[in-house]
Nucleic acid binder design. Structure first.
Lengths: 347, 347
DNA sequence: GTGAAAGCGCTAACAT
DNA sequence: ATGTTAGCGCTTTCAC
C-alpha cells in the first residue's frame, strides 16, 4: 500500500507538504507541488480516507435518511442527492427509516457514527429527544426535506403541497366538478394537512367548504384507494371526481371503478398526487400533481454542501413548486354517479 | 466526546479489555464485561468508526455499484442489499455506474478508497484492467450480480434469463403464437444473448428457428418499444404476439398499438420482461417474466458477508429463477395483424 | 514556504 | 483473562 510517506520520500519533501497538496490548503511552491503531483501519479497514491477522517474529523460522506430506498419515489430523491454530492466530490450513505421512529432513530445514529459530515433527513416522525441530543452534541448539520419543523435542522427543503392541492382542486372545479371525493392520507402527516388547506382554499373560491365534499382518510397505498373508492360508490354520494391522496391511491381507485364498469373520465374524473412512476402508464393516463423529488433531494444536498463549506445559506427554507400535470383522467363533470351505475356494484 | 479511555477509566479496566467487549472478540470475564457494559451505557459511549477502521482495516461498510439508484429496478436491488447488510450489522454505500465504463471505474475506486470491506457489483461493462488491479491489490472481495464473467469476482449471483425467456416463449407458443416479434435489447449484453438462446430453444421444441420469427434490436426503453412496434406494423409481418425486451419496451409498444387501434390481447398478444413497477398498472396488465432483483441484491450481500466472515461460500455462483407472471396481455393467437388493421397506420 | 513533532481513537501482538 | 505497548496514515500546530 502506498502511503503519504512513500510520496514524500519520492518527491523529496516532508509529509506535511504532501498533505498540503492533497488537501489543497496552505502554501506550497509551484516547484514542489509539481514534484509531489508527479510522485503521486507515478506511485498511484490514493489517500487513506480512514486516516484522514480520524485526524480531521471529516469524511466527505453525507448521510441520508429516506423512508425506503427500494421505493421509486425515494429512489429518485436519493438519485438527486447523489448527483449533487458527486458534483461536490462527496458520497452519500443512505439508510432507510421505514416510517418507524425507532428505525429512523437508529438510522440517524448510525450515520452520525459513520462520521457523516452532515445529514439529509426525510422523516415521517418527530426526532426523538435523545437522538436530537446526539445530533447536537456531534455538531452535525442537518437539512430536512418535507415533513414537520425539526428543531435540529439548519435548513429545510419543502415541496409546496398547499399550492399543489390548491391547483389540483381548482383544475377540478374549472372542469365543473362540485361533488368531489377526496381520499386523503392520514392527518398525522404535515403533507396531508397542507393539502387539505389547499383544497379548502380552492373550494372557498367557489363558495364551498370542506364539509361540502366527501373526505375519507386512509393510508397512502393502492389498497386504500380500492377500498375507499368502493365505499364511495356504496355511499351513494354522487361524486363527479375523485381526488386521490397519491398516485398509488389513484391506481387502486381506478381499479375499483373499472371493476364497477365506471369509465374514467367519462363517468367520473380522477386526480392523483406525486406523478409517480406509473402515473403515465395508467389507462387513462393520470392527471396529477408532480412532486419534484429528485430536485428536492438535489437542492437539499446543495444546501448542506454550502453549510459544510461554511457558507450559511442565504435562505434556510426553500419551497419547491408542485405543478399540475394534465393528462387524460380529468374531464368535464358528468351528471355524477347515477343510481344505475351504482347498481353495478351489487354483489 | 466519549472515548474508549473514558470507558476504561470508569469501569476500572484497561482499554484493551473494553476493546475486546465492543469488538466481541477475545476472552473477557463476566464480571468485567458487566462493568464495562454498564460504563458504556452510563457514558453513552459509541465507538469511533474512523479510528476502528484505520486500525483494523475494516469498516463494516459494503460498497455497491448499480446502473442507477434512481431507477425503480435498481432501487429494489439496493433495498435487498441493505436489508441483508443491516441484518449483519453492516451498511451499504451505493454508487451509480450509469452503464458507462468510466463512471463504473470511478465508482469502484471510490468505494475501495472509502475502505469498503467488500463490493457488490452490477455492471454493464467489463472491468477495466487498471481497476481490476486496484481491486486485487486492495484484496477487496467482490460479488457480482448478473452480467458477464468477471475475473475479480469471488462469487456471482445470476438471474436465469435463459429459462425466463424459454418459459415466456413457451407460453406464447402454447397460446398458438407462431408469428412472434421479438423487440430485443442490444447484443453487447449477456442478458440479451441468454434470452435469445432461451427463445431459440423454445422455438426449436416446435420445429422453429430464430429466423422464423421477427427480431429487432434496440435499447431497453419505451422509445424503442414505440418505434419498434410501429416499424413492425409497417413491415407487414403478420405478428400475433410481441415479446418485448423489457417492460419499458412493452409499455412503448403498447402505446403504439393503442394508437393504431390494435387491441391487446385480442388482436395481438404482448409479453414483457422484468416485472417492473408499472407492469401491473398497464391496461391490459402485462404478462411478463419477473426478475427478482431485490432477492438478487440480498443473496449477493449475504454471499459477500459470508466471504467477509472467512467462510468461502459453498457455491460461488447462484442462479435465481425468473418466473412467468401471467396477467392479461397474452391471449390465444388471433389471425395476425391483417391488412385492414395495418391500414389504420396510414399517416 | 517548509519540516518536525504530536497525536486523532482505536486494535492487536505480546507479555504476564 | 487482562494489561502494556506500539503503531494504523494522516493533519495540524508550531517553529524556523
Amino acid at each position: 500500500m502506498v502511503t503519504i510517506n512513500d510520496v514524500s520520500r519520492r518527491a523529496g519533501v516532508s509529509r506535511s507538504t504532501v498533505s498540503r497538496v492533497i488537501a489543497d490548503n496552505g502554501y506550497v511552491s509551484d516547484a514542489k507541488r509539481k514534484l509531489i503531483e508527479a510522485a503521486i501519479a507515478e506511485l498511484g497514491y490514493r489517500p487513506n480516507t480512514m486516516a484522514r477522517g480520524l485526524r480531521s474529523n471529516r469524511s466527505n460522506i453525507i448521510g441520508g435518511v429516506v423512508v425506503d430506498v427500494a421505493s421509486p419515489f425515494y429512489a429518485q430523491m436519493v438519485g438527486g442527492m447523489q448527483a449533487a454530492a458527486r458534483a461536490a466530490g462527496k458520497s452519500v450513505l443512505i439508510a432507510s427509516g421505514y416510517a418507524d421512529q425507532a428505525a429512523e432513530s437508529r438510522a440517524i445514529i448510525e450515520l452520525i457514527d459513520r462520521s457523516c459530515d452532515g445529514l439529509l433527513l426525510y422523516l415521517e416522525n418527530p426526532i426523538r429527544e435523545d437522538v436530537a441530543e446526539i445530533i447536537r452534541s456531534s455538531r452535525t448539520p442537518v437539512v430536512t426535506i418535507g415533513g414537520d419543523e425539526y428543531p435540529v435542522a439548519r435548513a429545510a427543503v419543502r415541496i409546496d403541497n398547499y399550492t399543489g392541492a390548491l391547483e389540483a382542486t381548482r383544475h377540478l372545479l374549472a372542469h365543473g366538478h362540485r361533488r368531489i371525493a377526496y381520499l386523503s392520507g392520514g392527518l398525522m402527516y404535515r403533507d396531508t394537512r397542507d393539502r387539505l388547506r389547499g383544497i379548502r382554499a380552492a373550494l372557498q373560491e367557489h363558495g364551498l367548504a370542506l364539509d361540502d365534499i366527501y373526505v375519507e382518510h386512509g393510508d397512502f397505498d393502492e389498497r386504500f384507494g380500492f377500498a375507499g373508492a368502493r365505499r364511495l360508490l356504496e355511499s351513494g354520494y354522487p361524486a363527479t371526481a375523485i381526488f386521490a391522496g397519491d398516485d398509488d391511491v389513484a391506481a387502486g381507485a381506478l381499479l375499483a371503478l373499472k371493476e364497477a364498469g365506471i369509465r374514467v373520465p367519462d363517468d367520473i374524473s380522477l386526480m392523483g398526487f406525486d406523478d409517480n412512476f406509473h402515473a403515465r402508464h395508467l389507462t387513462p393516463s393520470l392527471t396529477t400533481i408532480r412532486q419534484p423529488v429528485g430536485e428536492a433531494g438535489g437542492l437539499a444536498a446543495n444546501l448542506l454542501i454550502r453549510i459544510l463549506a461554511g457558507h450559511a445559506p442565504e435562505q434556510a427554507e426553500i419551497t419547491i413548486d408542485a405543478p399540475l400535470v394534465r393528462r387524460d383522467s380529468v374531464g368535464i363533470a358528468a351528471a355524477g354517479l347515477r343510481r344505475r351505475e351504482m347498481s353495478k356494484l351489487a354483489r
